[in-house]
């Protein structure tokens, strides 16, 4: 009998991720590209994941993320909410709560023991507290988004970015800069601002340990720390925060075969 494989593809607003697993849920191929829905990103990550896995065919595919509806080759489309929960639960079996901050939304998800979603809250259609907010910050501070974390580690508390609107926060930052605030401190302030937003969301579903953070923004260690401080809970950063949704999708694809 030939081995069966399962593909999960997570097509976000600013990146695409593909994960292929085998029948034992072992990852055999994975690819992430910073190009989202409507671009060549989805096709490329699939190709990349297949190459890495050294296979040409999968048994089932589940698509998730903002671009899932447009992606026609899936056996099933599922929300990123369910897929992140599933992926995180697989990687961190003790997880009860997921904080997932992606490019255009932020969510707090409570997971049932079987890895399914028990409840969730999501930010409203506002970029506050999302990856997009950090992108804007990085641009104003003239640094790469990947540099924000190290920068903030050197920062001192004190600068607050209080606007919830990303456009307002941008002008607030510009006036902080012209007022002589240091970019390290502003970077830290912007991370704290994300953390505050998460506290507001989390209050509605409750935070139950273990709390795991996933999504692209979890790559930023300073944000994770700010969330820890703001919530007073220990936060576990999921290994491979960007791929957790795609992994969850692949696991759901495997479930389809059961």
């Amino acid at each position: 009998m030939t081995e069966k494989y399962y593909l999960g593809i997570d097509i976000g607003s600013s990146s695409s991720k593909a994960v292929i697993i085998d029948g034992d849920a072992k990852i055999v191929g994975e690819k992430i590209i910073n190009l989202g829905t409507g671009s060549r990103g989805p096709a490329e990550v699939i190709l990349g994941a297949f190459e890495q896995a050294g296979i040409t065919e999968v048994s089932k595919t589940v698509a998730t993320g903002y671009g899932r509806i447009q992606f026609k080759d899936a056996d099933k489309q599922m929300t990123e909410i369910s897929c992140h929960a599933k992926g995180v639960k697989h990687l961190v079996p003790t997880a009860q709560t997921v904080i997932d901050i992606g490019g255009q939304d932020a969510k707090v998800i409570r997971i049932a023991p079987d890895g399914k979603v028990d409840n969730f809250v999501m930010n409203d259609k506002c970029a506050a507290g999302t990856g997009r907010f950090l992108e804007v910050m990085a641009r104003v501070l003239d640094v790469k988004i990947s540099e924000l974390s190290d920068l903030a580690e050197k920062g001192q508390s004190g600068v607050t970015i209080s606007s919830t609107c990303t456009v307002f926060a941008e002008s607030e930052t510009i006036s902080q800069l012209s007022g002589g605030s240091k970019i390290e401190d502003i970077a830290l302030g912007s991370h704290k601002s994300i953390a505050e937003k998460i506290v507001g969301l989390a209050g509605r579903v409750g935070l139950v340990d273990d709390i795991v953070m996933s999504g692209g923004v979890a790559l930023n260690a300073s944000v994770v720390k700010a969330v820890e401080e703001a919530t007073g809970h220990k936060i576990i950063r999921v290994p491979d925060p960007q791929g957790a949704g795609a992994l969850g999708a692949a696991l759901y694809a495997r479930d389809l075969d059961k």
Partner: peptide, 21 residues
């Protein structure tokens, strides 16, 4: 101006997933 179709659908589908669960 205050509504987005894709965001609506994501929430609806999430509701389905929770109802199913």
């Amino acid at each position: 101006r205050a509504f987005n179709e894709a965001q609506f659908e994501t929430r609806v589908q999430a509701l389905v997933e929770m109802m199913e669960a």
